Structure formats: C-alpha cells, structure tokens
Simulated assay, not measured.
Amino acid sequence: MGSLYYGDSAEPIGIEDRALAHLKVVISTKLRRNESFTLSWAHPETDVVGRSTIWLHPSIPLRFVFDEAEPPELSREWIEALARSANSTGGIALVDERISGPASLETARS
C-alpha cells in the first residue's frame, strides 16, 4: 500500500502501489501544465464507508511514497482512462484497472 501525502497533512492517503504509480503519471502531467483538478476515490473496505475528493493545484505540496522498491509496468489504457477523467468536469475518479490487452508502457524510475 502506497501513500499520497497531500498539503501539510501528516496523515497520508493510502492507495495501492500500482494504482498510485498510474496516478503519479497523470497527476504529474496535469500539474506540470499548471492545471488544477480534483481526485476522488471510494474509501477502502477497512475504512469508514464513503468517498473522498481533494483539489489538486500546482502550489499544494504533494508526495508519492511507494512500498515497493521497483516501479510496476504501467498500463497505457489505464493511464489514458485516468487522463480522460482528469480532463472532465468531475476530475480524476480512481477506478480499478481493466486489463483488455497487452498495451503497456515501460515506467521510468523516479
């Protein structure tokens, strides 16, 4: 389970490493373009029932922490789906990965 540290909050948002790696690509791209947007996710089964949304802006500190030392191979389809949702009025909706083919791209170590 990876962690997304948002703003000055000491409590991280827990996101599975593979999902966090895909989010990192989309979020970094949007913030590099100086674009603001929201990120929404359903609470894990071990948490209080519900969902959360945060506003992402280039001026708000953000840190990605992964439990795994090696980055996963990324799915181009999942990145594209997350990017499409990031460009919508609803912002990024963190959804499960849907594997439909061999389309993937190598990750760069960061």
Rank of each mutant, 00 (worst) to 15 (best):
M1W: 05
M1I: 03
M1A: 08
G2L: 01
S3K: 15
S3E: 14
L4C: 07
L4V: 01
Y5S: 11
Y6L: 14
G7M: 07
D8K: 11
D8L: 10
S9E: 11
A10F: 08
A10G: 11
E11S: 14
E11V: 13
E11C: 13
E11K: 10
P12W: 09
I13Y: 02
G14P: 09
I15D: 01
E16H: 11
D17P: 04
D17V: 07
D17G: 03
R18P: 01
L20V: 03
L20W: 01
A21W: 15
H22G: 01
H22W: 06
L23E: 04
L23F: 15
K24T: 10
V25E: 03
V26R: 00
V26P: 02
V26Y: 00
I27G: 01
S28Y: 03
T29F: 13
T29R: 12
L31P: 00
L31T: 07
R32Y: 04
R32T: 08
R33E: 15
N34A: 06
N34I: 04
S36K: 09
S36G: 12
S36E: 11
F37H: 00
T38Q: 15
L39G: 05
S40A: 10
S40L: 04
S40N: 08
W41K: 01
A42T: 15
A42C: 09
A42Y: 08
H43I: 02
T46V: 06
D47F: 03
V48D: 15
V48K: 14
G50Y: 01
R51M: 13
T53I: 03
T53Q: 14
T53Y: 09
I54E: 04
L56E: 07
H57A: 13
H57F: 06
S59T: 06
I60A: 00
P61G: 06
P61V: 02
L62Q: 03
L62S: 05
R63V: 13
R63E: 09
F64V: 06
V65M: 09
V65K: 04
V65F: 08
F66K: 14
F66L: 06
D67E: 13
D67K: 10
D67S: 12
E68M: 09
E68N: 12
A69G: 08
E70I: 13
P71M: 06
P71W: 09
P72A: 03
P72N: 00
P72L: 04
R76E: 12
R76C: 11
R76V: 02
E77N: 15
E77W: 07
W78N: 06
I79L: 06
I79V: 05
E80P: 00
A81V: 05
A81I: 03
L82M: 04
A83D: 13
A86W: 09
A86Q: 06
N87H: 07
S88P: 03
S88M: 02
G90C: 08
I92S: 03
I92F: 06
I92A: 00
I92R: 00
I92M: 05
L94Q: 02
V95Y: 10
V95H: 13
E97G: 05
E97P: 04
R98H: 02
I99G: 04
I99C: 02
S100L: 08
G101T: 07
P102T: 15
P102N: 14
A103S: 14
S104F: 15
L105F: 12
L105E: 05
E106H: 06
E106M: 10
T107S: 10
A108C: 10
A108S: 11
A108R: 12
R109Q: 15
S110P: 10
